[in-house]
Each structure stands twice: as C-alpha cells, then as structure tokens.
Design a protein around this nucleic acid. Structure first.
Lengths: 343, 343
DNA sequence: GTCGTTTGCTAAATCGATTAAGCTTTAGCA
DNA sequence: TGCTAAAGCTTAATCGATTTAGCAAACGAC
C-alpha cells in the first residue's frame, strides 16, 4: 500500500538515505559515490519501482513542479486548445498543470490566484481579468515566474504571449476594403481590455489608411454582460439600422457566432447580402456554408511560447521581460462573397 | 517572501505549534483549548494571513486535495465542458484538478496515470482508453477513489458516470423511422469501446423493433486512426455507394462534423437529399443551416455526478459501486427535413 | 492532606525527501 | 613514520504541518 521510500532502498542496499538521494539525483559523481554503490542503488530503485514523493521533495525544495493555468473559460475553443498544448509542453519539462476558469470575473480570478498560491505552484500562466492589476503586480514583486496570455495590463510591464491583434484586425479590414466593400461595420464588446482596443485600433487604422469612412454609427459595442438573447437582439437591430451595410467584422469568435445567428434570423445571406469576417477561428466557421473568413490565432505557437517563456523564468533567467507577439493569419473562406467572385 | 507558518503564529501567541494546529483545525473544543487562546490564535492567523502549506499537510496526512482528470482530448467540446464543471464542483469541496489528454492512446494514458500517482492525487476521474484494464484494476485494488466517464470497462466493475448511449441511439433511429425514413445508414468508428457498441446496439434495436431492415452495407465503420482526409473520402464513397440512402446517423460528434463536410462536398443538401443526426451536440450543429438534429449528452449532470460519486469515495463511503447512467436528449433541428415538413 | 480527575496545554515523533557538515578510511608523498 | 588530501560515506537538520502521548496545575471528594 505505502509507496517505496528512499529509506527502503537505503536499507536494502545497506547504505544511508543520503547516498541514495545523491545517486538518484544524478549527483553520484559530484558526491563521489562509487560506481559499485551507484549501480546497486539504481538497480534497486527500478526493481522496487521507486517513485519519489513529490510532496516531500516539494516541501524541502520549495518546488512543486506544478504550474497554474488561469484562463477565461476552459470550455472555449481557443482556451481549451491552448490548455491542451500547454499541458503537453509542460509535461516535457516534468511539470503538471492546475487550471481554472475566471469567466472574466475579478473575484473568481482572485480566488483562483489565492488557491494556486497556497498550492505553491511554481509558475503562472494567466489570462488577466479587468482590474487584476494589484494581484499581478504583487506576483511580479514576489518574483514569481509568470506569463500573461491573450491580453496584458498596459500599466504593468510583464511577460506575455499574444497574437498581434492590431495586425489581425488591420488585415481583415484591408482585405474587405480591397474587395471593394465600402460600408464596413465593426461589432465588438464594451470590454476595455487591451486586446479589444487593439483590434479596434487595427480596424480603424486600416480604414484610415485607405481613406475609408468609419462613422460612429458603424461601430457597435455589445456589453460583455449581455446574455445570448440580448446580444442577438442588439446585433439584429444594429444591422437593420444600417440599410446600406455591406460587410461586418466581428471582433471575437463568440460575437462572430452570434453574428451568424443574427444574420440568419434576419433572413440575410452571408457572402451575398453581407460579407462577414470574425476574429478567431472555430470549427463552425470552417464548416459553415458559406465558410466564414476569419483572423486565426496561432494556437500552437502561443502555447509553446507560453511554456518556453515560463520555463525560462523557472530556470532563473529572470533577466529581461519577454513580450511575444505572434502574427495572426487571415483565413479566406467564402463569407466575403465578392472575394471569391471578384477574383 | 516566505510564507507564514504555524510556528510564527505559535511564537506570537506564546503557545506551542500543536495548540495552533488544533485550533486551526477546529479541534479546539475536542482538545480542550481555552476560548481565550483559541480566539487569540484565530485572530493572529487572519491578521498574518496564514495559509497552511498544503505540501507539509499532504506529506503528513497523505492527502493532497487534488484530483486527476484524464480525458480523451481536453480540446474537444464535450470533454472541455465536462472539465469546466468538474473544476468548479471540485473547488466547492476544496479540491483542485490536474488534467491530461490521452488522445485515446494507451501509452499516454499509462504515462498520465503514473504521473498522477506519484503526484499523489487523492482521486481519479478517468476516460479509459482501450486496454487500460490492468491499470484500472490495480487502482481499484489499491482502493483508490476513482470514477470512469464516457465509457467503462465491462470486465471490471467500477464506478462510472455516462450518458445512456443505447437509449440515445435508439431514440435517434426511432425518430428517423417515425418520420418515414427507410434507408438509414449508420456511420461509426471501428473502436470496440463500450460506448460505441452501445450506440450501435441501440440503433439496431430500434431498427429491429420497427421491423426496419438494416443490412450490413448500411453500416460504415471508419477506423479511428484515419486522418481527416481519409475519413472524408471514406464517408463520401460510402454515401455514393448507396443511391437510395435517405438518412444517416453519425455515432460521434466528430464523425457528424466530417459527415456534414462530406455531404457538402458531394453537393447534397442536408435535410432535403439526406437526413442527418449525430450523437453529441456542438455549436456547429446548433448554428449550421440547416440545424443538425443530435443526441445531446447532459454535460452538467455528468460532471456533477462525477464529482459527487468521487467525493463519496473520498469521504470513505466505498461501500457500494456507483454506476450512473444519465438520459440523452434528442434535440430536434432541421436536418431531418421530413421532420419539420411532415409535422 | 491525599488521591484521582479534569483542564489546558506541550514535547517530540512523523511524513519523505534534500543537503550542509563532518567523519572514516585509504592513498600519496616526503 | 607521519601528515595531508582525497575518496566514500553518514549524521543530523530541515521543510511545515499533524498527531500521539503525556505533563503540570487546578479542582473535587473523602
């Protein structure tokens, strides 16, 4: 029942636990343990299927080999996929992952951080909620290894890994403009978070660069507190309110999904009556008829960079701040009808 | 930097660490600690923001307050949603969750179990891969709290929580038959796992119950090792091979997705040329035009039951085996055209 | 006044590993 | 032979909590 401990090995090998520890930690040479003894110990360890007790080790060394992953919603396509790669990559370094979803709620995020702290995770991958500044700041001051993802807090210089939101939105808008669309609307959220701002900025910058007009009435912000029904209603009446609308850019994947549903309910045809682009990819966008053009995030790259940066910190390379911004890819499908027709 | 320990509190309160431990564990009365001292300790603890070191506690008590969650693929809609609720529910009991994806691969599953074991998780929620019997058996013999999900191993009586696969498939087939469809095909995987068998059994039982014919050529098994491209090819040529086909039941959500894509590529119209039902719901099915009728799993219920059963075991109620089978719901949408037209 | 009981608390062992410090024994060299 | 150095281990402290066993003082009963 009980596991095999270092003592058991020591007893059977006729040496002290210290010696066993040295050998099993690869310090045999350094600690001048004879090859004879080393081999005997290694043989015994594998024979007895010795598994070091991580708790004991952690208690002594202060390292749990665990990282905390805080996402907005683990059930969301983007975060779930990141979580998957993060787990795989962390595993390569001998780390396990504890996760939690904030629902973008400050209180939940604080709660998660507290739990992770007293679980003594070695490092953090955090999708910050609004107003999480104080907590992030104090983690930073405590020099805890940490990387932010998906967004960052402009006031606090920290490591982060994100997609290039500005460029992604810029490319999307430019693509629509080049296809000849003139009345392009942007549907985004009221969230003041940086990733949303940058998508808005990228979009407007493209419009400006092409001397296209983007009056205030072409911008719709849906409160992030809105229920699905409310969001659908708002999107529908927004669309109805702009008769000459010919294209819509949705700034997130869930808004894109709501958008598709809204457009469908209005009896309009995507790609014919109105062009659609959404930020973030989704199975739905790929398989929808017509396929929905989108700005895809490089999920694998994001996850791998997160771990790479975090491992750097965990190994003590805390020298400089790592801010990784990865390119977004415009996946052209059929939802911008003129696109395929015109070309 | 260092955390506040029980010793710090003891020193400041002028008592021994033992006393502090008793008070903080709610054993003040039982251990006859005076109210005076109790209060002083509690006050100090909250003033110093004492957080018990879980490692130390775990080392001593053998409990980590951590559960291991092994899913097939955390990025999959079903598992991601279960993972989310599992985390929330576990949190209510003070447990955190370590997760990992097997990709239905035996070696990965073994690796995960090994890691979780030596991380000393208190309990396991496992989606077993094929041939994981030996490992499950040995966990069971070690009397480790454990619940299986999504499927179980018929040879080993264990706790599990699953949807009623038989009933779900039966209902789907019956629904199609009642709508007047006669040539109904079943597309499933070559997987021999119980949940797949039961879906097949449910389907054939319904056909038999209604005296409908279900010749071997109406059954297509796609190897689960097939790439997406291979799967699409196979589904397409299967459909082409049965000219009078009028309905298809896909036994999993990813086959349903492939199915939609295949049908689309063949230039057929879902709900008009061919009716479609898939096991498992998905955003895509809901938002697709036409909406895809499906057999939905009660995800929240599944997750809550998993935790409930596991907590029962963790609290020592290991008396009897809990096998929870939850009803599947047929979500009727437009993909079975005659359905909406006929009614 | 003595004995037994209760009250209120503490000492010390323990969980299993890591690690600084140190203790033998053998070797090397003059 | 005697002295230093290196080789090869071990002792014991430590991480922070839990928990068993038990001590000292106060109290009560006779």
């Amino acid at each position: 029942m009980k596991g095999v401990s270092i003592k058991d090995i020591a007893k059977q090998a006729g040496v002290s636990p210290t010696t066993v520890s040295f050998v099993l930690n690869g310090k045999a040479k350094e600690k001048r343990i004879s090859d004879q003894v080393s081999k005997k110990i290694l043989k015994l360890a594998s024979k007895l299927k010795y598994k070091p007790n991580q708790l004991a080790r952690g208690l002594r060394t202060g390292k749990t080999k665990t990282i905390g992953l805080i996402v907005e919603d683990i059930a969301n396509h983007f975060f779930a996929n990141v979580a998957k790669i993060v787990e795989e990559e962390a595993d390569k370094f001998g780390y396990k992952v504890l996760y939690g979803s904030t629902e973008d709620d400050l209180t939940k995020a604080k709660g998660l951080l507290e739990v992770l702290e007293y679980r003594q995770v070695d490092g953090y991958i955090i999708t910050p909620t609004p107003n999480l500044d104080k907590e992030i700041e104090s983690l930073k001051n405590a020099r805890k290894p940490m990387v932010l993802m998906d967004r960052y807090l402009p006031q606090i210089p920290t490591n982060y890994v994100m997609v290039n939101n500005f460029q992604g939105a810029f490319d999307a808008a430019e693509y629509l403009l080049n296809l000849g669309y003139g009345k392009i609307a942007l549907v985004t959220t009221t969230s003041e978070q940086i990733q949303m701002k940058e998508r808005l900025n990228g979009f407007t910058a493209a419009m400006k660069a092409h001397n296209a007009s983007f009056p205030r009435k072409m911008l719709k912000k849906i409160p992030f507190t809105a229920t699905k029904e409310e969001a659908l209603e708002q999107i529908k009446s927004f669309i109805k309110g702009i008769p000459d609308l010919d294209a819509i850019f949705f700034s997130t994947n869930y808004l894109g999904i709501y958008g598709i549903e809204s457009i469908k309910e209005l009896g309009l045809k995507i790609g014919e009556d109105v062009a659609v682009i959404s930020f973030d990819d989704h199975d739905l966008f790929r398989l929808h008829t017509p396929g929905i053009t989108c700005v895809a995030q490089p999920i694998n790259d994001i996850a791998r960079n997160l771990i790479q940066v975090l491992m750097g910190e965990l190994n003590g390379n805390v020298s400089q701040i790592n801010q990784v911004i990865l390119p977004a890819t415009l996946l052209k499908r059929e939802s911008c009808g003129k696109a395929t027709l015109a070309r």
